[in-house]
Design a protein around this nucleic acid. Structure first.
Length: 888
RNA sequence: GGGCGGAUAGCUCAGUUGGGAGAGCACCGGCCUUACAAGCCGGGGGUCACAGGUUCAAGCCCUGUUCCGCCUACCA
């Protein structure tokens, strides 16, 4: 017996800490810069440096880790590139809040000091999420960890910016953008969250300048009228064709402005007259450009009214709205005020209501970059899985708008552009130019804006591998094999990586994109702090162990469906981990050495059967993982280990293991047990890395980490493949017989301790032979006294009968049980058969079925009908006997 | 407004070319059978949302309806 017996229960905490440290120390996660092995690479979706591990991270990284560990076992050179994102606005907000707690704000500190404070903050707290990933078991190549603000990545960012600018794909200009008055920065369209709010639609009368009447306009934001510079109507609108005057007077401001005609106006909405505020509405801005209208900015960057708002100056924008409405009412210019539901943009970071605002910003001409990114997916260079997301991807890419990349914050990559203070020349360059190239002045000032965080993330697949240098790493691992990500950042991130990767590397950044679902709470709601329904993965890990948690995530990760997480489910998989542990514990009691050979001449039916099953299941699990069907992979492994290996195989070989007189048969059983357990560990390792490594370490005959093991291949076991395949059928018969007897026992409440007499009858020679050779096994697992094997059914009035394929089982019950129970049991069984036979009969009496269904299907159904009705007849005959016996 | 997904056992969900409705948990009955009571053995339970259609045959394909959920959008 092995000396390394396992403890009675698996205690994950200590094991996880110890093994992870060892893996890291031994460099088990390290990728080779170049290698003869096939390459497999994943770049991690870099978590925000401010982040704490949530369920989304846990799922996302568990999947990546399963793939990486699996590919290592398959023999690949695996790179899992880790890192974090500087998360511009998010991080700045966090640090600002921290300053505010000390009664300070960033403007007091100044830009340089503030950035210093952010770096300091990052040093202190920024590795939190990395440590949490380690708790999850993530096998990232930590030596290569990157940060979107580190030196190399910053260089990549500047290089890309300069190139795109030189190529005319980046430009600067005054445009309407989404503006967050709280964060005081522009936001991209994607960073705005639209929520339906109950507001009002105000109808306001604008008098005609000649006093002959008025035009009524409708708006949801009356305060913006202070910045109106025109009223627009549709050119074909009859209502406004014959106005006596083409000028109106803007109420409250007494400003004359034109009535213009533009086809943008929807005649059916409101009154068909649209007030135009070029400085505060994106559509109005475009109309304004078309008609050369002036823009008057009445809402300042901080959300307060400007001097151009006249007497409303200094008011908050919402306060001003009330004031404007009140004045309009007083002047009898407010025609109606209707309830109106409409979408309102909110800042995705601070949830403030976003204000469309006119400002000078930098943009990327996205359409040019999008086209090749569309084609790459169409041609299959990049596959999106599940495929359903390709349509979403196309839709967005085809309608893509220019990407506003400048942000008016301090934390981020400062835009590498300088303006000459003498002549106004704009210089875009990698580094600060010493002099103006035009006027030679030394007085150059760098843009204060920084880049959108997603600009640097877009370069992640190649910037982390050393680009713009031509590194071995890039050669070996770019394009990456697969990107694993949630659909919530499909546009933010995936689409932009596609664009940048193709543009700068000339190749797609990843061959596959696996898009997984969201993790929700038990009721299917999104987890959020405000709802208080957040389940902390670290708490789950603490309570149930990492392996149980990972297995749960994998088992529930069906493609295209959100996961509802509850602790109860994790508990179920903890049981599984414990089951594995105990199975290993049992095995180790009987294994004292490794085995590189199986004595095929002495292996038993259960031995051959479990090898055949292992063979199939390893192939199945591998195929599922290759197809990103994590739940099926986990399910197949679970079913095999628990319900085939533990429930049947281990029970079946116990007699051989305990009986030393069996010599070669015992030896063969140990060889098979060792082999199957070894491969089960490897099979499960990607899902449950810790417990498998811990058992591996205790398993005699294994050397080094399980991470160095080889994933089992079909030809690994015995040469006799036919024998293996036959074993499945033979074992099926044996198991059916055992289950049949157990069923009688259970249904009739016969104590397990009661040893029974049973007989199996079959007209088929090979069935009888199987049963005869497996007599001991059946006697043992069905808890019999003796088992007779015969050709013809033996009708006993005092026996219970069960019928399985090609065999009849009889269990003698005389003196054991009350026979009325057996009559009831038989009636129930016959009832089931009758129901099934009715369905089959209907089918077979349908001429359409007989003539049109494939021959195979028809004959299968016929065969089944014969089988079932034979069974029914036998049971009916038995029932008669039992009844007559009762009457006696 | 446009688009997408879901509706299957009490609960959570699988169900990949249309051909015998499954799992886990929960529930009921019986077991401390020398790895495991975090276990073992057995069992009950479903008009596959609704209405049509295609087909010999539909949980699966088509059309429509209802109810959830999500994404997206410049109707002031």
């Amino acid at each position: 017996m092995s000396e390394d017996l396992l403890e009675k229960g698996y205690e994950p905490k200590e094991v996880e800490r110890r093994l992870y440290a060892k893996w890291e120390a031994d460099g088990m996660f390290a990728a080779a810069d170049s290698s003869d092995k096939p390459s497999f690479s994943i770049v991690i979706p870099p978590p925000n440096v401010t982040g704490v591990l949530h369920m989304g991270h846990a799922l996302n990284n568990t999947m990546q880790d399963i793939l990486c560990r699996y590919r290592r076992l398959k023999g690949d050179n695996v790179l899992w590139m880790p890192g974090t994102d500087h998360a511009g606005i998010a991080t700045q907000n966090v640090v600002e809040r921290k300053l505010a707690a000390d009664g300070k704000d960033r403007h007091e500190l100044g830009r340089d000091k503030f950035i210093e404070a952010v770096w300091k903050w990052r040093e202190e707290y920024g590795s939190a999420i990395i440590n949490q990933l380690k708790h999850l078991g993530a096998s990232c190549d930590w030596q290569r960890e990157r940060f979107t603000m580190d030196k190399g990545l910053s260089k990549a960012v500047r290089t890309v910016f300069v190139k795109l600018y030189d190529q005319g794909l980046i430009y600067r200009g005054m445009y309407i953008t989404n503006w967050c008055p709280r964060c005081q920065t522009a936001l991209s369209d994607l960073e705005v969250e639209h929520k339906e709010l109950n507001g009002h639609l105000y109808h306001i009368r604008y008098p005609l300048a000649d006093g002959s009447g008025s035009v009524v306009v409708a708006t949801t934001r009356p305060e913006t009228m202070l910045g109106d510079t025109a009223v627009a109507v549709h050119p074909d609108d009859e209502r406004y064709r014959d106005l006596s005057c083409d000028t109106v007077i803007l109420p409250l401001m007494d400003r004359k402005m034109p009535i213009i005609q533009d086809t943008y106006v929807d005649r059916a909405f409101g009154t068909g007259a649209l007030k135009i505020t070029p400085a505060h509405d994106p559509n109005d801005f475009e109309i304004g450009q078309r008609h050369n209208l002036p823009s008057i900015k009445v809402i300042a960057d901080d959300g307060r009214m400007t001097a151009d708002a006249g007497r409303f100056e200094g008011m908050d924008r919402f306060e001003c709205r009330k004031a404007v409405v009140a004045e309009l009412k007083a002047q009898d210019l407010l025609v109606t005020m209707d309830d109106h539901k409409h979408g309102v943009g909110h800042c995705y970071r601070c949830k403030s209501i976003v204000e469309p605002n006119l400002s000078r910003q930098w943009f990327v001409k996205a359409k040019v970059l999008a086209q090749p990114a569309i084609e790459a997916v169409q041609s299959g260079k990049t596959r999106i899985i599940p495929e359903i997301w390709t349509k979403t991807y196309y839709d967005w890419m085809l309608n893509i708008k220019d990407w506003c990349i400048s942000r008016q914050i301090w934390w981020g990559h400062q835009i590498p552009a300088w303006t000459c203070q003498e002549c106004g020349e704009l210089v875009v360059a990698m580094d600060a130019p010493g002099r103006c190239r035009k006027c030679n002045s030394e007085d150059l000032v760098q843009e204060s804006d920084v880049l959108d965080t997603w600009f640097s993330s877009a370069l992640w697949p190649f910037s982390t591998m050393g680009w713009p240098e031509h590194t071995d790493l890039l050669k070996t691992f770019y394009p990456t094999t697969v990107l694993v990500t949630g659909f919530d950042i499909l546009f933010f991130w995936v689409a932009r990586m596609m664009m940048m990767g193709i543009h700068f590397m000339g190749e797609v950044p990843f061959k596959d994109v696996y898009v997984h679902a969201l993790v929700r709470d038990e009721e299917g709601k999104k987890m959020s702090k405000s709802k208080g329904n957040v389940i902390d993965p670290l708490v789950v890990i603490e309570q149930y162990g990492t392996d149980a948690f990972r297995f749960t995530l994998a088992a529930f990760a069906a493609q295209g469906r959100d996961i509802k997480m509850s602790e109860q489910r994790v508990e179920g998989y903890r049981h599984f981990i414990n089951k594995l542990w105990n199975a290993a514990r049992f095995s180790l009691m009987h294994l004292d050495s490794g085995h590189d050979h199986i004595d095929a001449d002495h292996i038993s039916l259960p031995d051959r059967w479990i090898l055949a099953r292992l063979n199939k299941v390893t192939g199945q699990v591998a195929q599922c993982l290759d197809d990103y069907r994590f739940n099926e992979a986990a399910g197949a492994a679970y079913q095999f280990v628990w319900h085939e290996f533990c429930d049947w195989y281990l029970e079946a070989i116990k007699p051989a293991l305990y009986d030393d007189s069996r010599g070669p048969a015992q030896a063969a059983a140990k060889q098979v047990l060792w082999t199957v357990l070894r491969d089960i560990l490897v099979l499960l390792h990607p899902f449950a890395p810790f417990v498998t490594e811990e058992i591996w370490d205790k398993l005699p005959g294994t050397r080094g980490s399980i991470m160095l093991a080889r994933y089992p291949e079909p030809e690994d076991y015995v040469a006799d493949q036919d024998g293996l395949n036959r074993a499945e059928g033979e074992m099926r018969t044996v198991m059916d017989i055992i289950t049949g007897i157990r069923n009688i026992r259970g249904e009739m409440n016969i104590a397990p301790s009661a040893r029974l007499e049973a007989a199996v009858a079959s007209p088929l020679d090979d069935v009888r032979q199987t049963v005869t050779t497996q007599q001991d096994l059946i006697v043992n697992l069905a808890r019999l006294n003796a088992l007779a094997v015969q050709e013809n059914d033996l009708h006993s009035a005092t026996a219970a009968t069960a019928i399985v394929t090609d065999a009849t089982i009889m269990v003698e019950l005389k003196g054991v049980v009350d026979f009325s129970q057996e009559a009831q049991r038989l009636e129930k069984e016959i009832g089931k058969l009758t129901k099934e036979l009715t369905g089959i009969g209907k089918k077979l009496s349908n001429p359409g079925f007989l003539s049109k269904a494939p021959e195979q299907v028809v004959s299968d159904v016929r065969e089944k009908q014969v089988l079932l009705s034979e069974k029914q007849d036998k049971l009916a005959a038995t029932l008669e006997k039992v009844k007559s016996f009762i009457q006696i």
